[in-house]
Design a protein around this nucleic acid. Structure first.
Lengths: 146, 146
DNA sequence: ATGCAACCTCAAGCTAAGTTGAGGTCAAGC
DNA sequence: GCTTGACCTCAACTTAGCTTGAGGTTGCAT
């Protein structure tokens, strides 16, 4: 077997569970940079399987594709990333998670106070007005949250 | 001062920080049910300030407007909700938060293992494949996550 | 009774993250 | 050498959660 380092888009799709159309979309957004054959077909590196895996995890943490791209940009392009490369990024993600957990805990504590008083009033509760920019942005109204 | 129980959309907007256009949108989606004047202008109850506050909090917890509407439907329509009404919903939200925190903690632990091995590989890590349906849906690709 | 800010509706536009379809090309096995 | 499944591009459509604009009406203060 030739054992080349390259895989087709269909192969990458099957290995990651991500639709072919989504992979092409990711390329368009700069998350993937496949090579092309003479006949214009994409050829991915095997390490792109990990790259896509990372995208999936990061999405679950609530990052948008643009933010994910920033993280991925830290990886060496062209050659396969090393274990240390990935570990650095993993650690950054861990911090993201920790931030989110902290924010949720704060929110929960404040909500507990609200249960006490039944208020849910903007002025007293201050479940808003601060702590907002950090995480938890969700799909909400950009103009309101930002 | 007449001290009526009604407020205009502009008033509601100022009190909640939510744009007038968004409030109209919420009405369209069934989250608000203002009365109308003879001249077709909306008149909200003062308690709608709380109602909108609830929408904002719930959004931060990652609920979509449709889900939020389900919660709000539990409130007595027409008359002002009581303290007990709100408390019941607040408690439900607290559980949502607890779920999210639990899920994030699990994710974090699994990521810790990944940092150990540097894998991020779908097969071994199982950062995917389970635990997915619950929370954390984010704005991601519906067809992939569901 | 008039001015004007605040309200109204309706249609179109926006971003994110993709999917779907039409119409055409590539490459690998027989 | 030809067939056929996998691949290509490009444009249009989808959902959520709004905003923006055009063109018109209301209602409160003077």
């Amino acid at each position: 077997m030739p054992q080349a380092n390259f895989i087709t888009i269909g192969h990458l799709s099957r290995r990651t569970g991500v639709a072919v159309s989504a992979l092409r979309f990711y390329e368009e957004k700069g998350l993937l940079h496949p090579l092309r054959t003479g006949g214009n077909q994409r050829r991915f590196l095997k390490s792109d399987i990990r790259r896509v895996s990372f995208v999936l995890i990061a999405q679950k943490l609530g990052l948008g594709l643009a933010e994910i791209e920033e993280q991925l940009a830290k990886l060496p392009e062209g050659r396969n990333p090393t274990l240390a490369d990935w570990q650095k990024i993993s650690r950054a993600m861990r911090e993201q998670i920790d931030d989110k957990i902290r924010l949720l805990n704060r929110t929960r504590n404040q909500l507990d106070q609200c249960i006490g008083c039944g208020c849910l009033s903007l002025q007293k509760c201050q479940l808003y007005n601060k702590d907002d920019q950090l995480g938890l942005k969700g799909p909400g109204p950009r103009a309101v949250l930002d």
